[in-house]
Amino acid sequence: MSVNRLLYGALIRPRPRQKRLECAKHFRVLAHASKEDSASGNEPQSYRTFSDLFQCSKFSSILDPVNQNVEGEVLAVVGGNMYVDFGCKFHAVVPVPTSSSPGGDGTRYEEGSKVVVRVLDLEMTDHFVGDHRDTSLLEAEAKLVVQK
């Protein structure tokens, strides 16, 4: 089962310097690589504008997080529900599995626990007749994925 990590490291890290240099040597483009390295510390020059950074971001590389398993962190547990932050705009409210429900294996969920959720909707919105735009619940929808 593949789990995406949207939560930590919004950016995909560039390859380590050592590896890049090796690679560059291999393809005989060392001059180009060293020029790129010296631009600004460890960051290549192409990382400056928003469009470049966004292309390197995890959110952009996943294309669509809906129906994917992502890692999340429990922000709070309130009255049998836990608020899970999985790295997008909104948190999702997921019921804490009880002992009778599937996945109720006695795992304790508390603030800061890592969970895996399947994203169903990034923001619960719908259109109401007569309204000129959609109404939002300001909440994402997700389902807890039980780890085997």
Binding site: L53, R133, D134
Partner: peptide
Amino acid sequence: SVRQLLEARVHLGHKTGTWD
């Protein structure tokens, strides 16, 4: 910096249907 804003998820807006 732009990077700091991106890491704080400042770029994420609402769903397209709710826009102004």
